[in-house]
Lab assay of single mutants.
Amino acid sequence: CHSECLGNCSQPDDPTKCVACRNFYLDGRCVETCPPPYYHFQDWRCVNFSFCQDLHHKCKNSRRQGCHQYVIHNNKCIPECPSGYTMNSSNLLCTPCLGPCPKVCHLLEGEKTIDSVTSAQELRGCTVINGSLIINIRGGNNLAAELEANLGLIEEISGYLKIRRSYALVSLSFFRKLRLIRGETLEIGNYSFYALDNQNLRQLWDWSKHNLTITQGKLFFHYNPKLCLSEIHKMEEVSGTKGRQERNDIALKTNGDQASCENELLKFSYIRTSFDKILLRWEPYWPPDFRDLLGFMLFYKEAPYQNVTEFDGQDACGSNSWTVVDIDPPLRSNDPKSQNHPGWLMRGLKPWTQYAIFVKTLVTFSDERRTYGAKSDIIYVQTDATNPSVPLDPISVSNSSSQIILKWKPPSDPNGNITHYLVFWERQAEDSELFELDYCLKGLKLPSRTWSPPFESEDSQKHNQSEYEDSAGECCSCPKTDSQILKELEESSFRKTFEDYLHNVVFVPRKT
């Protein structure tokens, strides 16, 4: 048989008469490798580009789960590009990614509803959504962080984005990388972005840091009482949809009607710091009717980097990364020049730590249904340095008659930039024990000054392991946590139920 035959053949030295091919099969003959313009397919066939392209389009058009959109890589027609490569849609070739590779997620039936953290986790790592997304989240724990972890990498949506009755959302900033909504599939009414009845939605994105392009379709905003109209108009300008909307697409009466839409800028007039305090004062603000001013709200939190936005980490279910302080308005003076500047002394802060701070007014709604208010920009203030805590785990070892090696770990709280350490030492008198000992005694162990690591005695271990207080009263049991108490109650309830079950099964009433 021919060298490319495997198993047997019907005619000697003829690659077209093989029972099976050793390498690849091409047009009725066995070959060692697939010549151009053919590609290896499933490690035994040679196919042309049209064959591989037909497989790709067949799966793409069917949208069946589990099928493969075949691509070409290293002269092979394979189910998908290997790690580190992405497909070129024009020629199906796998090309190296520039940075992290995109991950295209194809949605069944063309859309997916995100109504819980669990459903959001199914899209973790996706960068391109081939379909439409509907966000409908009523509640949950730590929602802002969970949504950002699972949806934060999405850069492109081919269909539309719909935010509907998501009472738990305060902001859409968890879509931190969303840059493009194509609108290839539109919501009824030709809408590519749809926001309806979101009672706590206050911000779409921080438009000073976020760009969003909507290729096709219109915007729809109705019944978002805490979303200011200025935020919607800003989205029109940034996304390129200005002029597409009709009169009733953006409701003037049901958007922002319960919001404090600040239209003035508060400026800080005085800032002073110490290692654990920050004193702030800002310019006074009074609405047209000074009785509408209820006070100020001061927001602050630790910020290692200057990239904080107002609604980071917030949701309507209680999660809030900001510390909020309510401040009463100052006494009002008739003389504008003698107006008191409101302020606040922030206490209990960490030394040498940068804080993000902003302040906003708290006002009631005027009778004319106009909203007044003022808010400052987010500023960054760093507390002063102070003395560091003591170095940890000092170790001293003498390696000769004239040297001592000293080692330690950095302090747990540096409280500033540590530039150097101060080492103090003092000579001590020799131990009298060394002169009084009889060095001729056998088995004498000389006193040693070398360091030995501390260890816990058996008594201390027994005390720590004991669940009861000892007789001397030195140790006591740790208080039980809520989960331990709940577990004990469940076990007790189970024992009672099981005992009742045994009584009912074992003891049967005697027939009379």
Results as ranks from 00 to 15, higher is better:
Lys301Ile: 04
Arg179Ile: 13
Ser166Lys: 00
Asp115Pro: 02
Leu266Ser: 01
Thr364Leu: 03
Trp207Asp: 13
Ile137Thr: 12
Gln245Cys: 08
Leu123Ser: 02
Gly313Gln: 11
Asn248Val: 12
Lys267Leu: 12
Asp249Thr: 15
Pro288Leu: 09
Ala303Ile: 13
Lys112Val: 03
Ser260Gly: 01
Trp286Ser: 02
Val170Met: 08
Asn334Val: 08
Ile154Ala: 10
Pro284Met: 13
Lys360Arg: 05
Asn248Cys: 15
Val381Gln: 11
Leu153Phe: 09
Leu252Ile: 10
Glu155Thr: 09
Thr383Pro: 01
Ser400Lys: 14
Ser396Met: 06
Leu345Val: 07
Tyr167Leu: 05
Met346Glu: 08
Gln121Arg: 13
Cys261His: 03
Tyr300Cys: 15
His106Asp: 15
Glu155Arg: 10
Ala195Arg: 02
Val397Leu: 15
Glu122Gly: 14
Cys317Ser: 04
Cys105Lys: 00
Ile135Val: 08
Asn211Trp: 11
Leu298Cys: 15
Ala168Pro: 09
Leu345Pro: 10
Arg291His: 01
Asn334Ser: 13
Ser398Cys: 08
Leu265Cys: 07
Leu219His: 12
Leu201Tyr: 01
Ser319Ile: 13
Ser166Ile: 07
Lys177Met: 10
Val397Phe: 15
Lys360Met: 01
Ala149Leu: 06
Cys126Phe: 02
Asn320Arg: 14
Asp315Gln: 14
Ser274Phe: 08
Asp206Lys: 14
Ala374Trp: 03
Leu151Ile: 11
Ser208Gln: 08
Pro351Thr: 12
Gly152Val: 03
Cys317Lys: 05
Ile163His: 00
Glu283Met: 15
Leu204Arg: 03
Ser158Val: 05
Gln354His: 10
Ile214His: 04
Ala259Thr: 07
Leu212Pro: 04
Asn307Ile: 15
Asp289Trp: 00
Asp315Lys: 15
Ser400Ala: 09
Ser116Asn: 01
Glu184Ile: 10
Glu122Ser: 08
Ile404Ala: 00
Ile327Arg: 06
Arg332Val: 11
Asp367Ser: 06
Asp289Val: 03
Pro304Val: 09
Lys209Gln: 06
Lys350Thr: 09
Lys242Asp: 09
Pro329Thr: 09
Pro351Trp: 06
Arg138His: 04
Ser333Lys: 13
Ser396Lys: 12
Ile157Val: 12
Gln245Ser: 12
Phe193Thr: 05
Ser321Asp: 04
Ile129Met: 03
Leu294Asn: 04
Gln245Thr: 13
Asp328Gly: 05
Glu231Asn: 07
Phe268Lys: 01
Asp326Met: 04
Leu294Lys: 15
Gly373Pro: 05
Leu298His: 01
Ser173Cys: 10
Leu151Ala: 06
Phe193Leu: 12
Arg138Val: 01
Glu156Gln: 14
Asn211Glu: 09
Trp205His: 13
Gly318Gln: 02
Asn399Trp: 12
Ser119Val: 01
Ala259Cys: 06
Met297Asp: 03
Gln216Leu: 06
Pro288Asp: 05
Ala149Lys: 15
Leu133Cys: 01
Cys317Arg: 04
Asp292Gly: 03
Lys226Ser: 03
Leu161Lys: 00
Val363Thr: 08
Leu212Asn: 01
Gln199Thr: 05
Thr213Met: 06
Glu237Val: 15
Lys242Val: 13
Asp249Gln: 04
Glu187Cys: 07
Leu161Val: 08
Ala120Arg: 03
Asn399Lys: 14
Ser171Ile: 03
Tyr223Leu: 03
His222Tyr: 04
Pro411Asp: 01
Ser319Gln: 04
Arg247Glu: 02
Ser260Arg: 04
Asn142Thr: 13
Ile379Ser: 07
Ser319Val: 13
Ile395Leu: 10
Gly343Thr: 14
Arg165Phe: 08
Leu169Lys: 02
Gln354Gly: 11
Arg165His: 05
Leu107Asp: 07
Asn136Val: 08
Val390Gly: 02
Pro342Glu: 04
Asn136His: 09
Cys261Ile: 03
Leu362Thr: 06
Glu109Ser: 02
Leu153His: 10
Leu178Val: 05
Phe220Met: 15
Ile129Trp: 06
Pro330Arg: 14
Glu187Pro: 04
Cys317Tyr: 04
Gly140Glu: 12
Tyr380Arg: 10
Thr127Asn: 09
Leu153Arg: 09
Lys407Phe: 07
Asn334Cys: 15
Leu201Lys: 01
Pro330Lys: 12
Ser119Glu: 04
Lys253Arg: 13
Ile188Pro: 05
Leu108Gln: 04
Trp207Ser: 09
Pro411His: 05
Ile214Asp: 02
Ile163Pro: 01
Ala145Gly: 09
Thr353Val: 07
Asp326Cys: 04
Arg332Trp: 11
Leu219Gln: 04
Ile357Ala: 06
Cys228Phe: 01
Leu345Met: 09
Gly183Arg: 05
Glu156Gly: 02
Trp322Gln: 10
Gln382Asp: 03
Leu143His: 05
Trp205Lys: 10
Thr353Gly: 01
Thr241Glu: 06
Thr254Gln: 09
Ser338Ile: 09
Pro391Gln: 01
Leu151Pro: 01
Thr371Glu: 07
Ser119Cys: 02
Ser402Val: 15
Ala145Asn: 12
Gly110Leu: 10
Ser132Ala: 03
Asp289Thr: 03
Ala251Lys: 07
Thr383Val: 05
Thr185Cys: 08
Met346Pro: 01
Asn136Trp: 08
Met346Gln: 14
Ser239Asp: 05
His341Ala: 11
Arg179Pro: 03
Thr213Arg: 09
Val363Phe: 09
Pro288His: 08
Tyr194Phe: 14
Arg179Ala: 12
